[in-house]
Simulated assay, not measured.
Amino acid sequence: MNAVARPDLLPRRRVLLDMAIGLASLGLAGCGFALRKAPTFAFQTIRLQGNEGTAVARELREALQANGLQVLTSAAAQPTQPTQPAQVVLTVVTDQRERAVVGQTAAGQVRELQLRTRFVFRLRAANEKTLIDDTELLLERDISFTETAVLSKDAEEAMLYRDMQGDIVQQVLRRLAAVKSL
């Protein structure tokens, strides 16, 4: 008799399961989740100055241009470019890469390295009003090291530096987008 009663319960369970899934999806839709959109800026022209020849500064310039901003560089970097007023000036104070030994064997051989990328910048309006004070972004990555795989570890190190560089550019873009008025 139990075997006969169970088929009657299956459609009811299915309906209850469908209702539970529907309610859960409604709850997720109402939580405010949304995909990240392209940043919007309170300015249309920006001047880069300072350490603008570094890899992070070059990638930052490309990302700003890709987001629709007109990017000007200092006259020292591009002497043929006419001097134009920019709405804001982004000064790259520091852009450096560091490599430190953090682990050694008893024989003094390097076993672990720490890679760091340090980026310090500030943002000022054309009227010298400080919009973003000196801000330091420091990213660190650990990497194991072995003498038998030096070439592959060099490639891994370069990849980690490129990854940190992209992370810094995205963080700077988000901070620039947070400026709502000049």
Rank of each mutant, 00 (worst) to 15 (best):
V4S: 15
A5L: 08
L10G: 13
P11Q: 08
P11M: 00
R14W: 12
R14D: 15
L16V: 09
A20V: 13
A20N: 12
G22A: 15
G22V: 11
G22L: 14
L26M: 13
L26H: 14
G30L: 11
G30M: 14
F33Y: 13
L35K: 13
K37Y: 04
A42K: 04
F43I: 01
L48F: 10
N51T: 06
V56A: 10
V56D: 03
V56T: 10
V56F: 08
E59S: 13
L60A: 09
Q65L: 13
Q65Y: 08
A66I: 00
G68T: 02
Q70A: 05
Q70G: 06
L72G: 02
T73K: 08
T73D: 12
A75D: 11
A77R: 11
Q84N: 05
Q84C: 11
V88S: 03
V89A: 06
V93P: 04
T94Q: 14
Q96C: 07
R97C: 06
E98M: 10
T105D: 06
G108V: 01
G108Q: 08
R111W: 02
L115V: 09
T117F: 07
R118C: 03
R122Q: 15
R124G: 05
A126M: 08
I132K: 01
L138D: 09
L138N: 04
L139C: 01
E140W: 11
E140D: 15
D142Q: 09
I143K: 10
S144N: 13
S152V: 03
A155H: 00
E156C: 00
Q165F: 05
Q165T: 09
Q171L: 03
V172G: 03
R174N: 12
A177N: 06
A177C: 02
A178K: 00
S181N: 02
